[in-house]
């Protein structure tokens, strides 16, 4: 594993190794001294072309806890807003000696281009590209599910036999795409729940089931985990695509409220990648209930990103460009 571009690239063994490593990283984060010397002298560049607070802070925290140097590069107010191309930005970072580039880009495939074009010799980590992939989010979701539903001695184990329902705007969601791939790789069964307008074309080829009715899935599917996706209000207007008639109608059909929460199996957990729209896709009752693990997902995000940085950066650099 040299880059982390897509959750679909991970084999089951690789995914389990990342989760196991993340569990050890999480254990170090409950200590008084949280910093480890492991990546001393390594440089991690956060290259963010799209606004993101929590993902950037999470990567920054993870890199700093491993003693790496962190350079934050956001497109706003940088040379990119003056028209610099991705290639020239990458060459600049390479000249500065970046060992890893964490990239978020509005264009699907930008991290792949960066990794494949040979502009940088560092590891490329996809922190979200367009509507394509967000692999570290899927990893932290899988980690959270495993922690809660597989048991304390989960080391080496996948998510076999578990049922995860992903509810909301699947069409625009890179979180949903990454999760479908990763969770099924780990042995879980995934059901996507969305209004027909928010289900992507070609979903029948995905390794998951699709339902248009949240109540049926909650009642009959007995999901072990319910993952609510963020819905953007502007998607309802005709300018935004007119995907649903009104926020209220969306909430009635697909929001998680107290009634649906009560209908879930007793052990089921409620997840959300954040930031939440309280009252739209998730009610305050559900978001604040003891079964919601949303805050814990944030803490697990740091541990998972530490694991990814460790696995990509700590070992011998198998530089593909040796000999050039």
């Amino acid at each position: 594993m040299r880059h982390l571009l897509s959750a679909g690239d991970l084999t089951r063994d690789e995914a389990v190794l990342i989760l196991d490593t993340a569990a050890q990283m999480a254990a170090t984060q409950s200590r008084e001294m949280k910093k480890l010397p492991t990546l001393r002298g390594r440089t991690v560049v956060n290259l963010f072309f799209e606004d993101s607070t929590r993902t950037r802070i999470s990567f920054e925290t993870a890199a700093k806890r491993l003693s790496a140097d962190v350079i934050n590069f956001s497109a706003k107010g940088s040379s990119v807003s003056k028209g610099e191309s991705l290639k020239d930005t990458a060459l600049t970072l390479q000249a500065m000696g970046a060992d890893a580039v964490v990239i978020r880009h509005q264009a699907s495939g930008a991290p792949h281009t960066l990794a494949a074009a040979g502009w940088t010799s560092g590891a490329v980590i996809n922190a979200g590209d367009g509507t394509h992939q967000h692999p570290t989010q899927a990893l932290l979701d899988a980690f959270t599910v495993r922690r809660h539903l597989v048991g304390t001695d989960a080391t080496g184990r996948g998510l076999d036999g578990l049922h995860v329902a992903i509810v909301g705007d699947v069409l625009h969601s890179r979180v949903a795409r990454s999760n479908v791939q990763l969770l099924t790789t780990l042995g879980a069964r995934v059901t996507l729940v969305a209004p027909p307008t928010l289900v992507p074309v070609g979903v029948s080829a995905w390794p998951c089931e699709v339902s248009y009715h949240l109540d049926e899935v909650v009642r009959d599917g007995k999901p072990d985990a319910l993952m609510m996706l963020r819905v953007q209000r502007e998607r309802m207007s005709s300018a935004g695509g007119g995907f649903f008639p009104s926020p209220l109608e969306y909430t009635r059909g697909y929001g998680l409220d107290a009634t649906r929460l009560a209908a879930l199996p007793e052990h089921a957990i409620v997840m959300h990648p954040g930031p939440m729209n309280r009252g739209l896709e998730i009610s305050a009752d559900a978001a604040d209930s003891p079964r919601a693990v949303i805050v814990e997902q944030v803490a697990n995000g740091v541990a998972v990103r530490m694991a990814v940085l460790y696995l990509l950066l700590a070992g011998e650099q198998t530089n593909e460009k040796v000999g050039q």
Binding site: L36, L66, Y310, A314, G315
Partner: peptide, 21 residues
């Protein structure tokens, strides 16, 4: 006590898996 993350030869070997502390 796992010492993997404190080793001085991490860069000279393939990535090691981390043990339990």
């Amino acid at each position: 006590l796992d010492i993997t993350m404190y080793r001085d030869d991490l860069h000279h070997h393939p990535t090691r898996s981390i043990g339990t502390t």
